[in-house]
Design a protein around this nucleic acid. Structure first.
Length: 803
DNA sequence: AGCACGCCGACT
DNA sequence: GTCGGCGTGCTC
């Protein structure tokens, strides 16, 4: 038998199957989708079996045998295998990358070189003998650390030892010591025979008698009995208990949140939406629904009931949320409703925890997965429903290879399983809404809030006016007053600061110089905590200068408003207010996010101040005021989605206020109050916004009227990058059809990152059958030729942004 | 991507 | 003479 294997090497000439002989010993168990260890050139690598056959085009003598079968059961189903193939073609990625992205990181191979000593007797070098200490397989690293590399080399040359590659899985199954306590009689006999001075052992025995016959983990036993490990060991040796290692799942800690009551009745709109979805499911149609529901309209309840329906029919469901750790409340609701049938996958889990959740899915122990983007590859084999909540979120697009969009993968999988997909959002992406308008997706609308609450009253504050009136702080008078009222009433406020482009930077007030990163064309961000300037793109760090590097003036100081600055202003304006700040700095620690949110939900603070991360999912009854400190920062990004992003953000943020009994109020501070994205977000007027934005997109030829693909070139040398960008663009122009618009080459919006200059070329097309083929040709030229000069070229089909 | 092979300069 | 620099080419 011969196996076709995709090997774990991301390189252009390797991106195809290689044939291997299947040793007779494993022919009975080998399956497509299992991983193997194979010799590849002079080393060993991990590979995925994508096919089995009897004959190879190559001569059998050229084939090497598989070294080892790693999985007895396939880790990739045939459905996912085909999907990976599609993914690789569609996103122009290597097949190996498309395969790896489907598995938890813990299953990716880690390679380690190992010294193998066959005949210990042949070793004469004394120092090396001592180092080996009788061992036959030792990591090469250890020899290196002991300075024995030359000795190893000599022995390898003499053929006495060899160097092999060991493939190590990052995390394996977690095991726990389980103690089975003996029966009462045995224990009592033992107790009688124990030495009188072994007080502790007697104590433990007595405890065990009370728990005779039970099985308990060693850790729990020690906690409950208050006995040390050494004592336990002694007692086990005497025969009072037996122990064995048992597989366990790491139980990720779930935040304790207040129970959200299950509403007895659905609103009419909810009921209609649910019926449409379950009907589609019953008819086994791969139908994609766009569930457009304003904030607070109860989309989640529709999801939950649709899932219930699917589970009752013995099928499985995948639920994607933008970044699950951001919405602990959402997770909690799923756990409440479906209990142990739910697996949770999010970035806050350790790689071991993710692996465990993955295994639960694969073994069919759970029926629902709630997770971030990569959960779309959950190894279910009987999917009945796929949900993307907040479908407009750009986090569904992976930023590095394979650059896939979870929405596309979801639809692809639904076609295989003949099941519905729900795309849910209060502010759908223009692409999705346009498709729904054209009937490609089925539109479901929830236009009323579930509990019949009013939408919050939104006030747009013109900050130019404030400035004219002499208010130079970041709080307008109306917002400051509103905060003060909340403090008096004991209600809570959420203050939102648009992070991007709004961090503090250092500016010379004499010559206007802004301190920039020496490696990137971007201003450095001021960090108060350690009085340093940092680059968010390359990580460069330096001290805050005391003099302007340009004019040597001493009037150089930080400017602008990060969350730290905002916190200081709050402290000045409202000294009595208790503030929780949530940004990258305060949430870096594991679990910090949940902790801060819990504190806020328990009323331990009056004001929650944060960035992007607080825009979603927050749902606390006592929040009656939301303030957006500067709405226009996302508006001026050099991206065709800038207005859409702003509208979405404003709507999401406003939706945080007054979701329960108390009425909500929202203040949006801006320097461009007349912009339609801001104006229309006030009353969540999605439809008019959609119309206006579509007109703009049509005029400039952007999605959804055109598809966009971005080709980016980076190089240390400005002249070279311009040159290659020109060559690449010319190639595309020559090979793509006449109707396709090619813009560029142009310098990217951030023209230098990490000392590399960036150029790009934008391809806009309605229908371009030759696109994939042409891009593949371009990539081939790049891989075989241009790459040698130090150029890096990337292709992003339908990018999330075009910086 | 790694890794070996191979062909040139620098140093014991 | 040998060590080691990295250009070139291959991996079933």
């Amino acid at each position: 038998m011969i196996a076709e294997v995709i090997v774990d090497v991301s390189a252009y000439p390797i991106d195809r199957p290689f044939d291997y002989l299947v040793p007779a010993s494993i022919t009975a168990v080998i399956e497509v989708g299992s991983r193997v260890k194979v010799p590849f050139g002079p080393r060993k690598v991990l590979g995925y079996i994508i096919g089995l056959k009897e004959e190879s085009e190559l001569d059998r003598s050229k084939l090497k045998p598989i070294d080892e079968l790693i999985d007895l059961e396939p880790v990739i189903s045939t459905e996912l295998l085909n999907l990976s193939k599609w993914l690789a073609t569609h996103t122009l990625a290597y097949e190996i990358d498309a395969l790896q992205v489907m598995l938890p990181a813990a299953m990716r191979a880690k390679y380690e070189k190992v010294i193998v000593v066959d005949e210990l007797e042949q070793i004469e070098d004394e120092a090396f003998k001592r180092f080996l200490a009788g061992r036959k397989r030792i990591p090469l690293k250890e020899a290196e650390a002991s300075g024995l590399l030359t000795t190893v080399k000599d022995y390898v040359k003499q053929g006495i030892i060899t160097v092999d590659t060991a493939i190590r899985q990052q995390t394996a199954v977690k095991k726990v010591r389980m103690i089975q306590i003996a029966d009462k009689e045995t224990l009592e006999t033992l107790l009688a025979s124990i030495q009188q001075n072994a007080k502790k052992q007697m104590e433990l025995m007595n405890w065990m008698i009370e728990h005779a016959g039970e099985t308990i983990s060693a850790k729990q036993l020690m906690e409950q009995s208050g006995i040390q490990a050494a004592i336990l060991k002694a007692v086990i040796e005497k025969g009072a208990a037996t122990e064995e290692l048992a597989e366990v799942y790491r139980e990720p800690e779930l935040p304790q949140l207040k129970d959200t009551a299950i509403p007895v009745r659905l609103t009419e709109e909810q009921a209609v939406a649910l019926a449409r979805i379950t009907d589609s499911f019953d008819k086994r149609k791969p139908e994609t629904f766009l569930l457009h529901g304003i904030t607070g309209s109860g989309k989640t309840e529709v999801y939950l009931r649709a899932i219930k329906h699917v589970l009752d029919q013995g099928k499985e469901a995948i639920v994607l949320v933008p970044e699950i750790s951001l919405t602990p409340q959402m997770t909690a609701r799923f756990k409440e409703r479906f209990g142990p049938l739910v697996a949770v996958m999010h970035s806050g889990l350790s790689s071991g925890e993710k692996f465990d959740e993955w295994r639960k899915i694969q073994r069919g122990e759970v029926k629902v997965v709630v997770g971030a983007r990569s959960a779309i590859f959950a190894p279910f084999e009987n999917i009945g429903l796929i949900i993307l909540d907040e479908e407009h979120e750009s986090t569904y697009k992976q930023e590095d290879t394979p650059r896939y969009h979870a929405r596309d993968v979801a639809i692809k999988r639904s076609e295989y399983y003949n099941c519905p997909v729900i795309l849910g959002s209060a502010t759908p992406s223009l692409e999705s809404y346009a498709r729904a308008s054209k009937g490609v997706y089925s539109l479901l609308t929830l236009s009323k809030r579930a509990k019949d609450q009013e939408l919050p009253a939104v006030t747009v504050v013109d900050m130019r006016e404030e400035l004219r009136n002499g208010n130079r702080s970041m709080f307008s008078l109306p917002l400051a007053d509103a905060v003060r009222i909340r403090l008096e009433k004991g209600e809570q406020t959420v203050l939102f600061l648009n992070k991007r482009g709004f961090s503090s930077f250092v500016l010379c007030r004499d010559c206007g110089t802004v301190v920039e990163c020496p490696n990137c064309d971007i201003s450095l961000t001021y960090h108060r905590a350690n009085e340093r300037l940092k680059c968010h793109y390359c990580g460069h760090e330096e001290r805050v200068p005391l003099q302007c590097p340009q004019c040597e003036s001493e009037h150089i100081r930080f400017f602008g408003t990060g969350t730290q600055k905002a916190q200081e202003e709050i402290a000045k304006l409202f000294p009595e207010a208790r503030v929780i700040r949530m940004d990258v700095d305060t949430t870096r620690q594991k679990g910090a996010h949940e902790r801060l949110l819990r504190q806020f939900s328990e009323g331990q603070a009056d004001i929650l101040l944060g960035t992007q991360m607080i825009a979603k999912g927050l749902d606390f009854p006592n929040i009656t005021l939301v303030g957006v400190l500067a709405a226009d920062t996302t508006l001026h990004l050099a991206d065709f989605r800038a207005a859409e992003k702003t509208f979405q953000l404003m709507t999401q943020v406003s939706g945080r206020a007054g979701r329960h009994d108390l009425a909500g109020e929202v203040f949006i501070q801006t320097y461009t109050p007349e912009h339609y994205a801001i104006e229309l977000s006030k009353a969540q007027h999605y439809e008019p916004f959609y119309q206006l934005e579509m007109a703009a997109r049509r005029q400039y030829g952007y999605p959804p009227y055109f598809y966009v693909t971005l080709v980016q070139f980076t190089h240390e040398d400005l002249l070279k990058v311009a040159d290659y960008a020109e060559k690449g663009t010319r190639f595309l122009k020559e090979h793509l059809s006449q109707h396709t618009v090619i813009i560029g080459p142009t310098a990217s919006a951030i023209s230098r990152v990490n000392n590399r200059y960036r150029y790009q070329c934008l391809i806009k097309y309605k229908k371009e059958p030759k696109l994939t083929e042409t891009l593949q040709q371009l990539i081939k030229i790049y891989r075989t030729d241009w790459i040698k000069s130090g150029l890096i070229m990337t292709v992003d089909v339908e990018p999330a942004s075009i910086f």
